[in-house]
C-alpha cells in the first residue's frame, strides 16, 4: 500500500485562465492573450522575465505557467530543487509538433528548431531548467480514457525514497484538432512531498478513477498570502 502524499503547492491552466496555490487567479482576457500565452505572459503572471517562453511549444508553455502558478521556487529551497523529480503524464504528447514537423518535411525548409519538441521529455526539460530541478525526469504516456499513471509513478518515487519531492501532473495542449484528436489546452501540476505541512493530500488513484487530478484542481482555487519554503520534514 503506497501512502498518500502531501501537496505542497499546485497550479493549473485551462481555457479559462491560470490558477494556483500561490494566489494566481487570472483569466486569459485579463492577460490579453490566448492560451497558452505569449512572450509577455510569464511576466504578467509572476513578474519574471522569460526570454525563451515564446519559442517553446504549447505543452511546455502550459506546464511552465502551471508551475509559475504553483510557485515552485517559493515552496522548495534551492537544495530541495536539486533533488526534485518531475513526473508528468500526457495523452496527446507532442502531437501538434509532430504534425507540424512532418508537414515541414515536404516544404523547402525543414523546421529543425521544433524537432526537439517532438519528444515529450523536452517539455519536462523546460520546467527542469527554469527551476533547476535536478531529480529524475520521467514523461509518462497515458490513454485519455485511463489517466493517472503519472501520479502513481510520482507516489512510487516518494514512497520508495527515490525522490524526496516530485513535481507531478498532466499536460495536454494542442493548438487545433489533429489526427482525430480535439484541440486541448490544460495543464495541472502539484509539488508533492512524502509528509509534512502542505495544502492538502493526494491518495493513490484507483484504476477506474476517471479524473485522478481532480483533487489538485480543487486545491488550485485562489489562496491567500505568499507561499513559504517547505520545512523538508
Amino acid at each position: 500500500m503506497i501512502p498518500a502524499a502531501t501537496v505542497l503547492a499546485c497550479g493549473m491552466l485551462d481555457r479559462g485562465g491560470i490558477y494556483g496555490s500561490n494566489g494566481t487567479a487570472v483569466t486569459w482576457a485579463e492577460l490579453e492573450a490566448d492560451p497558452p500565452g505569449t512572450g509577455r505572459t510569464v511576466h504578467k503572471v509572476s513578474g519574471k522575465t522569460d526570454t525563451t517562453f515564446r519559442r517553446i511549444d504549447y505543452p511546455s508553455r502550459a506546464l511552465v505557467l502551471a508551475c509559475e502558478a504553483a510557485g515552485i521556487d517559493a515552496v522548495l529551497t534551492e537544495a530541495q530543487r536539486q533533488q526534485t523529480a518531475i513526473c508528468v503524464e500526457t495523452a496527446l504528447g507532442s502531437l501538434t509538433t509532430d504534425v507540424d514537423f512532418q508537414r515541414s518535411l515536404s516544404e523547402d525548409v525543414v523546421q529543425a528548431g521544433i524537432f526537439p519538441y517532438s519528444l515529450t521529455s523536452t517539455s519536462l526539460g523546460e520546467v527542469a531548467l527554469r527551476y533547476k530541478l535536478r531529480g529524475p525526469t520521467v514523461s509518462i504516456s497515458v490513454l485519455d480514457a485511463s489517466p493517472g499513471e503519472g501520479l502513481r509513478e510520482a507516489l512510487r518515487m516518494l514512497s520508495t525514497g527515490d525522490a524526496p519531492f516530485v513535481v507531478t501532473g498532466r499536460a495536454d495542449a494542442a493548438r487545433e484538432p489533429a489526427a482525430g484528436f480535439e484541440a486541448a489546452m490544460s495543464a495541472v501540476v502539484a509539488v508533492l512531498a512524502p509528509s509534512g505541512d502542505g495544502i492538502g493530500e493526494l491518495a493513490w488513484p484507483s484504476d477506474d478513477d476517471p479524473d485522478p487530478f481532480a483533487p489538485i484542481v480543487r486545491l488550485c482555487a485562489p489562496r491567500q498570502g505568499p507561499a513559504r519554503p517547505h520545512s523538508g520534514e
Binding site: 509532430d98 509513478e153 484504476d207
Partner: peptide
C-alpha cells in the same frame, strides 16, 4: 499510430495477454 507510447504498450500487452495494467513512458 500517433506516436503514443501507451498505445504501443497496450498492443504489446494484448499480443501476449498480459494480466497486469500496461504502462508506458517516453524520456527521449
Amino acid at each position: 499510430g500517433l506516436g503514443s507510447p501507451m498505445r504501443l504498450g497496450v498492443l504489446v500487452s494484448q499480443a501476449f495477454g498480459f494480466g497486469a495494467r500496461p504502462t508506458a513512458l517516453s524520456c527521449a
